[in-house]
């Protein structure tokens, strides 16, 4: 067995870290957009808005029922053929679109469950003091649903960070794409990929820590 090239591994870390911001930016953008879309989808599902509800169910079913990689290829290679104004779509945009759609479908379902999980009597109380449905959602239901949903949503965010690595299949040089190139140049595949694995791992661990902190803070109002 060959001995690992530790010098190469150490030297690779700063090279790869230069691509970390792009990875995180794609994940952050995807997360923010997915959250907004998921809230919208979840509210439509909860209020059973006519027509939109059926459309939402179809949307969720499709984006949960097909692989993310297939969706990315659809957005990047497929859409420009269909809609000529999208020919300029780049890999980063396509990745963010794919992450948004894919994860919003999952997140919509957990947000919906969280909304339904808020005690029904509080809805009646809010209506009884004359709140509108929108005020009820914004002031009473969503803040409490957030607390219920945060652990799962954080898990999706963690998943999303790892899923950004698929962007390299669209030619984006992010963390994974950069590693691939480095490895191809040096032929030190194991060294390169174990380093990138460790980088992902450390980031995910840091987020898990943040997740525990958030849960602790959000639960404050509910503990005796």
């Amino acid at each position: 067995m060959n001995v690992l090239d530790f010098d190469y591994m150490l030297g690779l870390i700063p090279v790869l870290l230069k691509y970390l911001p792009l990875t995180l930016e794609m994940a952050a953008a995807g997360m923010v957009l997915a959250l907004i879309l998921a809230c919208l989808l979840a509210v439509i599902r909860v209020l059973k808005v006519p027509v939109l509800n059926r459309f939402t169910m179809l949307f969720i079913s499709f984006f949960r029922g097909t692989p993310l990689l297939v969706q990315l290829f659809l957005f990047y290679y497929g859409l420009p053929q269909l809609v000529s104004s999208l020919t300029a779509i780049n890999g980063i945009t396509a990745t963010i679109m794919g992450l948004t759609m894919h994860f919003s479908a999952y997140m919509a379902e957990s947000i919906r469950a969280a909304i339904v999980g808020v005690d029904r009597s509080q809805t009646e109380a809010a209506l009884s003091i004359g709140m509108t449905n929108a005020q009820l959602m914004r002031r009473i239901i969503l803040p409490q649903a957030t607390r219920i949903a945060v652990p799962t949503l954080m898990n999706y965010f963690i998943d999303m960070i790892k899923a950004t690595s698929l962007a390299f299949t669209l030619g984006v040089t992010e963390l994974m794409g950069a590693t691939q190139k480095e490895a191809a140049g040096s032929f030190l595949y194991f060294e390169a990929f174990i380093i990138v694995a460790i980088i992902y791992w450390v980031i995910v661990e840091m987020l898990s820590w943040l997740q525990r902190y958030l849960e602790h803070r959000l639960n404050k109002a509910y503990s005796r």
Partner: peptide, 8 residues
């Protein structure tokens, strides 16, 4: 009957 206070 069950108070129904806003828990948040």
């Amino acid at each position: 009957q069950n108070y129904a206070l806003f828990a948040n």
